[in-house]
């Protein structure tokens, strides 16, 4: 079954994905995403009744003792935005 994705659909997805798109980009992606979704529709042909994926290998329930250890240095972590950090915190524009 052919899956139609409109330019409006793409713009809506872009909002959900937090990506700025030009109108031109939206037109290209509408065509491409439509083709991709049409292709993956074929998954419906597989009988998966009662089947559940659990894990790749048989590894499960990995536990460890909760012992505090030194973590990364605050200065190191902030150095990619040094000009925007203050007193060990990152300063961003107000959200509300």
């Amino acid at each position: 079954m052919k899956k139609n994705i409109t330019v409006e659909d793409v713009k809506k997805i872009a909002i959900l994905a937090h990506i700025e798109l030009t109108d031109e980009e939206a037109i290209t992606y509408a065509k491409q995403i439509g083709a991709i979704l049409t292709y993956v529709e074929k998954l419906n042909e597989v009988d998966t009744k009662g089947v559940e994926f659990k894990s790749q290998t048989d590894l499960k329930n990995v536990f460890r003792e909760d012992i505090p250890k030194p973590s990364l240095d605050q200065k190191d972590v902030l150095r990619n935005r040094l000009s925007k950090s203050k007193g060990g915190s990152l300063v961003i524009s107000s959200v509300l």
Partner: peptide, 20 residues
């Protein structure tokens, strides 16, 4: 939105959008 618009290539945008 601008960081991702400018920073992602077409392939990154496409995959993130289809995944979303």
């Amino acid at each position: 939105i601008k960081t991702r618009g400018e920073g992602f290539s077409p392939e990154e945008k496409r995959r993130v959008m289809v995944g979303t």
